[in-house]
């Protein structure tokens, strides 16, 4: 579904050129959930924005469904770190925003919006304004707004990082359910090992300055997974330990890798 080939991106900083991403090669299969994990400043958000067509690469290219990405596509939807809702629009009208902008017939998508709100437990809040909702609910609205595009690819940029710990877990579990249900291809940028292990089929670990793919880790744990009691505690622990090791390196004692 997504093919990233020889992708590099440099920025002109005040103190010279900064290598944000260096020679990234990645293939994401149809329906795959890829988590991109790395420490702050490793260029993972930049990678996502290039795939989204929001910024151009300096070298290399990104193909989505076989076509090179030069600008944002309608079948690629984005969920940002913050909900980015319009404060004067009701929940339903916020979800319908892409429909309006694409000039799709509203009537045809109203039911879809309603189903998405039901799927995310927001059916009772369709006519509320964003500020009447909790942070977690606002982020659900922004997920619905992305899903109304019926995207082939969903790009998520640390979508849960502004939420409190319990809400994050709740939303991550919900996202897993939605992904199983819809089978959308997802690239999910995060710095939470826990979220990566819960959600991803594969995890791309990025190293910083310049951002490169340090390791691709397969997470072979049957779904649905959960944060709490789990039939696969050992695999979860092993995958988490491996990611810890890759991200924090020498700061941790040697842990046997599981894959």
């Amino acid at each position: 579904m997504i093919k990233i080939a020889g992708l590099s991106r440099t920025f002109q900083g005040k103190s010279g050129t900064v290598d944000a991403l260096h020679n990234i090669d990645l293939d994401v299969g149809n329906g795959e959930f890829l988590a991109v994990i790395g420490r702050s400043g490793c260029g993972k958000s930049t990678l996502l924005r290039i795939v989204a067509g929001l910024i151009p690469p300096s070298r290399g290219e990104v193909l989505v469904a076989g076509d090179p990405v030069t600008r944002p596509r309608r079948d690629v939807a984005m969920v940002f770190q913050r909900p980015a809702l319009l404060p004067w629009r009701s929940v339903r009208e916020n979800v319908m925003l892409p429909v309006e902008i694409f000039r799709w017939p509203r009537a045809k998508h109203r039911d879809h919006a309603q189903r998405l709100l039901e799927m995310t437990g927001l059916e009772g809040f369709a006519d509320r304004l964003p500020h009447e909702l909790s942070g977690g609910m606002q982020q659900r609205v922004s997920l619905c707004r992305a899903l109304i595009q019926r995207p082939k690819v969903l790009l998520m940029d640390e979508p849960f990082s502004a939420l409190d710990a319990l809400t994050r877990e709740e939303l991550a579990v919900e996202l897993q359910r939605i992904h199983i249900q819809l089978g959308t291809t997802v690239i999910f940028v995060t710095h939470s090992i826990q979220e990566a292990v819960l959600l991803a089929d594969r995890v791309a670990v990025l190293s910083a300055r310049p951002g490169r793919v340090r390791e691709l880790v397969d997470i072979d744990i049957p779904r649905p997974r959960s944060f709490g009691h789990n039939a696969h505690l050992e695999e979860v622990a092993a995958a988490s330990a491996e990611l810890h090791q890759l991200l924090l390196g020498e700061h941790l004692p040697e842990t046997p890798a599981a894959t």
Binding site: R71, M78, R82, A84
Partner: peptide
């Protein structure tokens, strides 16, 4: 207009 809203409308090719 905050950055996240700019980016949103950019990503929707508005």
């Amino acid at each position: 207009v905050p950055n996240d809203l700019r980016e949103l409308s950019h990503s929707l090719s508005a």
